[in-house]
């Protein structure tokens, strides 16, 4: 039965998932092209020097791409559920409500994580022959908050879309903007090292805020 729910979710978001994958790959390729240019036009040493002395990672163009992917994924997954209150169909299914909503959210978050992990893998494979592990970890740790922000974007858009009233939706949007702002507050390299794991755990926990929206939907709050 869970499989059927995942099948439904997949039908809704498959094209967007592919699009998000293409966008992520395109931005990754663009950034890596620039790195390649630095090496061929200047030297590898120049690249190392910049990474050693500045907060630049050469992947800055990707800053908001994971967030964008997360937001779009949540929109494509949950707006159809709320058009004509279609969520009713879902909640009528002979499964516990938390299981239904939990598997929908879990599916979305898992797809995002898969996308992000693959992106990270591509970045790692590209940088591994070029840079020392210290610099690779610097680049990847600096980028990590942007990817957690992608999950946060997904969580808060789902939370907002599933919410039945506009007044509360506005509140949810404001809370989401404030929370996501946190991931872009510091532009320094590796600034989030101490807390990023906690931020990830908190973000994953906040993905469950949608349970609150669905419960309000079920109470018929207007």
């Amino acid at each position: 039965m869970i499989k059927a729910i995942l099948y439904k979710e997949w039908i809704k978001i498959r094209y967007l998932f592919l699009l998000a994958a293409v966008i992520l790959m395109a931005f990754t390729a663009y950034c890596q092209l620039r790195i390649g240019n630095v090496i061929s036009l200047r030297s590898a040493a120049h690249l190392w020097e910049i990474l050693l002395t500045r907060d630049n990672t050469f992947y800055e163009a990707m800053r908001y791409v994971p967030l964008f992917s997360g937001v779009l994924l949540a929109l494509f997954q949950f707006v159809p559920e709320m058009q004509q209150k279609r969520l009713k169909l879902c909640l009528h299914l002979p499964l516990p409500q938390n299981k239904i909503i939990g598997s929908m959210l879990g599916f979305g978050v898992s797809l995002l994580i898969i996308l992000f992990v693959v992106t990270y893998l591509i970045i790692f494979l590209y940088l591994n022959p070029i840079l020392a592990p210290e610099l690779i970890s610097r680049v990847m740790l600096t980028m990590l908050p942007w990817f957690v922000a992608g999950i946060a974007g997904y969580a808060f858009v789902a939370f907002t879309v599933l919410e039945p009233t506009w007044k509360r939706r506005l509140l949810n949007i404001l809370a989401g903007v404030a929370f996501i702002r946190i991931f872009y507050l510091s532009g320094y390299a590796e600034a989030y090292n101490q807390v990023i794991v906690w931020l990830l755990i908190i973000t994953l926990a906040l993905a469950g805020l949608s349970f609150l929206s669905v419960s309000r939907f079920k109470d018929g709050v207007q």
Binding site: F179, L206, L209, F211
Partner: peptide, 12 residues
């Protein structure tokens, strides 16, 4: 679940 998240949202 939703009761827990009510508190979580309040704390947030």
């Amino acid at each position: 679940m939703s009761k827990t998240y009510k508190i979580i949202y309040y704390i947030l």
